[in-house]
């Protein structure tokens, strides 16, 4: 089952299967180390459609909600 990381619970880990977006979005995510097949962890999801904090390669990154919704992951580990 695939789902956007925003539907994961805080603290859960999953593998990225797809980045739903155009070239620019994929490039921007790539620059931050967010790519397919990488393991990603949800550190925090802020309320009121706020940002999402993820951890990848031991580094935390804050992403806008809209961007985070386009990061599609598989089942949680």
């Amino acid at each position: 089952m695939t789902q956007p990381i925003t539907s994961l619970e805080t603290g859960k880990t999953a593998v990225i299967v797809r980045l739903d977006g155009g070239h620019l979005f994929r490039k921007k995510m790539g620059e931050m180390g967010i790519r397919e097949d990488k393991t990603i962890r949800v550190v925090a999801i802020h309320p009121f459609h706020g940002p999402v904090v993820v951890e990848i390669d031991g580094r935390e990154i804050t992403l806008g909600r809209h961007m985070a919704e386009h990061i599609i992951v598989g089942d949680t580990a």
Binding site: M32, P51, I61, L63, G64, H66, M67
Partner: peptide, 10 residues
């Protein structure tokens, strides 16, 4: 007004 995309340093 693009969204935030910010690396959090240790």
């Amino acid at each position: 007004s693009p969204e935030i995309c910010l690396e959090i340093p240790p």
